[in-house]
Design a protein around this nucleic acid. Structure first.
Lengths: 240, 240
DNA sequence: CGGTTCATTGAGCCACATCAAGAAGTGTGG
DNA sequence: CCACACTTCTTGATGTGGCTCAATGAACCG
């Protein structure tokens, strides 16, 4: 299996305008281009383990991964869904705080840890972008706390679909999802349950319920059409 | 009431070595000293409201505040407990994403928003410290997702007490809390419930239960002695 | 010392978990 | 193309942890 693919040029990288490099000028890009490397992980593989060394700072170029923690007795909670332009690892820490697993095949753009720490220190454009992204992630994590702490099972599933629809729209440069958006679910029912703090059975039942209510129109277990964004948002008891 | 207290010197500020300024050298401190201002808020007052303008970036000098969101039907979730050296607001955003309320009297060290954005841009020491603090907050928020998503009521209360004990120890420069630590709870039972995604009744019942089990030894409703940190950590089903 | 707020405790209920069975989808070899 | 195994999803039956409703108790305060 080919793990170390030849690095394509940054110019037509799909996450050029969203990733940690997005504020870099041409000079900075030359440096990045020189020190970056790519790595492809197959679906289901483990990219990092909680407490274990993590020697790279990586951005997701394509694919989807989850960040999770599993307790001794097997209870698992996903703390983050990683999509293109999201990053894995952090400057100033040599171990991963969570398990990271590829949900689909995942392509990473990586920097060796110390190299990246130097980049952050010496390139204000990267430091600024990394700060903005981290602040956005922090807001997202806090918003998710409301979902996990206070929403019902039905609301959680709706909130999950809403967040997927919004990220999909954002990645296409839209302010908000279009009516009739078709979503492909990257996660299995079990993985969705782990993300929502629910069991697989409850998650499945809420999908059925939302379908019967007409809030969603699944075309297969992994594909969902959103007839009305407003109705979905209402089901998620979202403010907006 | 005195809202605008005369700024004391940064040299003997209680959060000098933990706050966003902690990596600044003498030159940078001179600048901060010139543009900072203090403000004191009484217990119970609202420092910011979700969606409303927030014209300062502030650090908590003394006291305790909560960051929360309330749904239309009254359900409330606290997404962050703010203690000395924690910050409120973020560069690049003119509104607050959450409600912020003073739990005790709170003293803030503030910078006007645009002034602070300039400081972040021009002072690498501040930018670097802000990034580190934000990454730490992000990890804390993700850890909290495990608490809200997967722990039982008993485990949540234990996890809350454990996190308080650890922050108390850290603020005293200790690696971990001492055996027999006495904690003062800044929050009411209701506020603890809002933080843990529980009702006030369930929260109260778990305090009673942990007391009967000998995991905690309350001396009043607001004061708790931790006889054994290991037992508390076990009750929280914490990895460490 | 009565009024007010906050905390505790009890009784009953319900949303979600658990346990269990089938159904649908996916892949492999003949 | 089908047969079979295997995984994933759905649905049903039952149990239970935490919520709701309600009352009492404790602390604080004018």
């Amino acid at each position: 299996m080919v793990h170390h693919a030849p690095p394509p040029a940054c110019g037509n990288c799909p996450i050029r305008h969203n990733a940690v490099c997005s504020e870099c000028d041409a000079d900075a890009m030359v440096v990045l281009e020189r020190v970056k490397s790519y790595r492809v992980w197959p679906a289901g593989s483990r990219l990092a383990s909680a407490g274990e060394p993590l020697e790279h700072f990586s951005s997701i170029v394509t694919g989807c991964a989850t960040m999770s923690r599993t307790l001794e007795d097997g209870r698992r909670q996903t703390v983050g869904l990683l999509l293109p332009s999201d990053y894995i690892g952090r400057p100033g820490r040599r171990t991963s705080a969570y398990d990271v697993e590829a949900v689909t095949d995942v392509k990473l753009c990586r920097f060796e840890r110390q190299t990246f720490e130097r980049l952050v220190r010496d390139t204000p454009q990267i430091a600024a972008r990394l700060l903005t992204m981290t602040l956005d992630e922090l807001d997202a994590a806090r918003d998710w706390a409301v979902v996990l702490g206070r929403l019902t099972a039905r609301e959680r599933v709706a909130a999950f679909l809403l967040s997927l629809a919004r990220r999909d729209a954002a990645s296409r440069g839209l302010a908000e999802p279009l009516a009739g958006t078709k979503l492909r679910l990257p996660l299995s029912r079990e993985a969705i349950g782990d993300h929502l703090g629910l069991t697989i059975e409850t998650t499945s039942r809420q999908f059925t319920r939302l379908r019967k209510e007409g809030v969603i129109a699944p075309t297969s277990t992994r594909d969902v059409v959103i007839p009305s964004l407003a109705r979905l948002a209402a089901a998620a008891s979202a403010e907006t």
